[in-house]
Design a protein around this nucleic acid. Structure first.
Lengths: 253, 253
DNA sequence: CATATTCGTGCAAATCCATGCATGATGCAT
DNA sequence: ATGCATCATGCATGGATTTGCACGAATATG
């Protein structure tokens, strides 16, 4: 196994589990702990993770979690959510992906008419607890705790049974060459499947997605009907998608 | 378990419960109290919390959140949850019903070994977001917002596919003559079905259930393996169940 | 004031880590 | 082809960290 490949896998595990245990990784990879420790030492020097006794942790695990818990959504995200929520029309069925951006959509959904929301995220379902008119369909499955969405065969099967009009898709990163991507293979498969079952798919874009690190698991951008972007985004970042003829909707008030 | 990870979890619990009890944390994590005390000492030095005799408190307790939590989960319910959570053993599969009492179970589940939690409540699933070792299976379906559980044919079908070892059942009322009951017909059907799929079913009882108004939709008490009651409950209230030979477990420390 | 927890310190055992060195594979120049 | 340098890897050793236990002191509770 190549060193670089190993480091990539270690970062994947770190993102997935929120921690890396040297002994366990060494066992999983069939290598000595020394090798893993050397990797961790180098990766700590590259500011990719923080070494601790017994393994390693992400550099700043608390920050995103903390802001999520506090419900502190940046203004841009809130603005985006409010704009996108207006796209929902009476009687329609919308599929809300998991994530903080789509949570903002849930918070801004119209309350003066009825529609149906489908989601595989218990967090999103919780946001809609007090919504007066929305019917909520919860997709079940094995819970992937990192992003709090149901996954696996059960989720795939349940998704197959709905035909949403609109799917509001959240992604981890958007890359000029590789396009849309997310951090987990299973999650990507689910997102692709939801997009296939939905009549239309819109991607929520924020600047941080464009600044994100290298992509991992790809979602074909051909599957999307459009991208929704905040007004402050740079035109240069969007050029690849304009050339790919993806409709782009800019948030306005 | 990594030290950093443990500290993060302690902070999570602190934010969630508004307090940390050293003895309880040590028990949940399967570590000695000394280790937890050392953690608390270090975290106090880092200005992450305030140490007090018996555990720790947040630096700036958030009054509304704290009082809300206290109102929702009185000490009796918390005690009941902690007691019942200890019934979970390594590798087992438990089904957690929706409701505030079962939420207390979720909050007190052991954190030092692996097991599986099945639930049809997104709220319960949310409680387990930061649990380090529990696999969570989410049952999907049409969301019944009043009690925040998935219902309907989809939920019934999904439940049929699991065989939990223990089902922790929450009810709305317990009546001397009519037995267990809940406020919604559909909900009752779901509960009955979960009980049928589970090897054992335990009912969580609090005084308010016994004081509740007339029952509505009946769950046969023959389906339960036992009732778990707090110590302050009156013996007279339990008489009908004693005569029905339902095993009764009284909460103790 | 009496009793039961809880706390802090010291100590021993277990675990984990850093360093140095040996081995084998690979690449490159001769 | 041969020799040398470089690199990745595993092993051994001594040191550092963590953890649990014991015991006396401190604190809460009635």
């Amino acid at each position: 196994m190549l060193t670089g490949q190993r480091k990539t896998l270690i970062l994947d595990i770190l993102r997935r589990d929120g921690q890396v245990i040297a002994k366990k990784i060494a066992d999983d990879f069939g290598l000595s702990e020394d090798t893993i420790r050397r990797d961790l030492r180098e990766m700590a020097a590259e500011r990719l993770l923080k070494r601790v006794h017994g393994g390693a942790l992400p550099l700043a695990p608390e920050l995103p979690d903390f802001s999520t818990r506090r419900g502190v959504a940046p203004d841009v995200k809130r603005q985006l959510g409010a704009f996108v929520a207006k796209m929902v029309q009476p009687g329609r069925t919308v599929f809300l992906d998991g994530g903080t951006t789509t949570a903002e959509i849930a918070r801004h959904l119209p309350r003066n008419f009825a529609f149906t929301v489908v989601t595989h995220s218990p967090t999103i379902a919780g946001e809609l607890e007090h919504h007066p008119t929305a019917d909520v369909i919860l997709i079940g499955g094995k819970l992937y705790k990192h992003s709090m969405v149901a996954t696996g065969a059960a989720a795939m099967a349940a998704i197959s049974l709905v035909r949403p009009d609109i799917f509001f898709l959240g992604v981890t990163a958007i890359h000029p060459v590789h396009g849309l991507s997310t951090g987990d293979f299973e999650e990507a498969a689910i997102k692709r499947h939801i997009a296939q079952c939905s009549a239309e798919t819109y991607v929520m874009v924020t600047q941080e997605k464009l600044d994100a690190a290298s992509p991992c698991h790809i979602l074909p951008i051909t599957a999307v009907s459009g991208m929704v972007v905040p007004p402050d985004i740079t035109e240069a970042s969007l050029a690849p998608y304009r050339s790919a003829q993806v409709p782009i909707f800019t948030v306005s008030d």
